Simulated scan of single mutants.
Amino acid sequence: MTSAWVGLVGVGRGAAAPRCARTCRADVVLLDIQMPVMDGLTALAELCRTVPDTRVLILTTFVEQQNVLRALTGGSAGFLLKDSAPAELMRAVRAAAAGDAYLSPSATRHVVDSLASDQGTHRAEQARRRLEVLTARELEVLALLGEGLSNADAGRRVHMSEATVKTYVSRILTKLECENRVQAALLARDAGLGT
């Protein structure tokens, strides 16, 4: 296992985040949604525009569907609640640094359920059509993503190694043209997979 150096630099205003990320050559930035002068979601857009190789995780106190959607569609690598345990925060940072997405397990079910309940039949039909390219086993793995399970937890559930699940996830993302596992999980829920 390789070790990594982690440095923390704090900024008090959202407007300072892009400049600080450039200066520090940050791999991962954690942004609070509520920041003075420039909120975290606006800072996210600026970070994505000016330092596109920097991955951004959004922090918040409350899960609000609109903010989660703006964050994920705006280029965020993940979404965490401020009361997340330190170990979860480190998992999220490592996932983001590795190019993966991370949605806090405590927020996943709420967000996915909110999105699914707010969408009409048309969205569900579109999602089901997109899933037609997947094999039965890929659909099974996708359903577990929709539950917010990690690769290790999904592997235990379906008696596969974590590496095999990771391979399936990569195939699923490619076939569905999703950028990350959060988008795939939302698609699974839209289609009613696993419900």
Rank of each mutant, 00 (worst) to 15 (best):
G146L: 03
Y168D: 06
E132G: 05
N151Y: 02
M160N: 08
V141Y: 00
L139Y: 09
R137K: 12
E147C: 14
E132R: 10
G146Q: 05
E138C: 02
Y168S: 00
K166W: 03
T135K: 02
R156D: 11
K175E: 14
T135V: 11
E132V: 15
L145T: 00
M160S: 13
E132T: 13
S161Q: 02
G155Y: 10
A143E: 05
V158K: 03
H159V: 09
R157H: 01
E138V: 08
A152Y: 15
L144C: 05
L142A: 06
N151E: 00
Y168W: 06
T164N: 14
G148P: 04
T174W: 04
A143I: 05
L142R: 13
E162V: 14
D153K: 12
E147Y: 13
T135N: 07
T174Y: 07
E138P: 10
I172P: 02
E138W: 03
D153Q: 15
V141T: 01
K166G: 05
V165I: 12
L134E: 13
H159R: 07
L173W: 10
L142G: 10
A154S: 08
K175P: 01
E147I: 02
R157W: 00
M160P: 11
G146D: 12
D153V: 11
A154G: 01
M160T: 05
G148C: 01
L139N: 01
K175Y: 15
N151Q: 15
L176G: 12
T174R: 10
R171A: 06
T164Q: 07
R137Q: 14
T164M: 05
R157V: 09
I172C: 04
M160Y: 14
Y168F: 07
V158H: 12
R156S: 03
R156G: 12
D153C: 07
R157Q: 02
L134H: 03
V158T: 14
L142Y: 01
M160E: 04
L142D: 10
R156K: 15
E162H: 03
I172E: 01
V141F: 04
R137Y: 09
K175I: 03
R137D: 15
V133L: 05
K166C: 08
T135I: 02
E162C: 12
Y168P: 02
R156T: 01
M160L: 14
S170Y: 09
L134V: 09
Y168M: 09
N151M: 14
L144G: 05
E132A: 13
E177K: 15
E177S: 11
I172D: 00
L144H: 12
A163Q: 14
I172N: 04
T164R: 13
S161K: 02
A143R: 08
G148F: 09
V158I: 13
L144W: 00
V169H: 05
V169D: 00
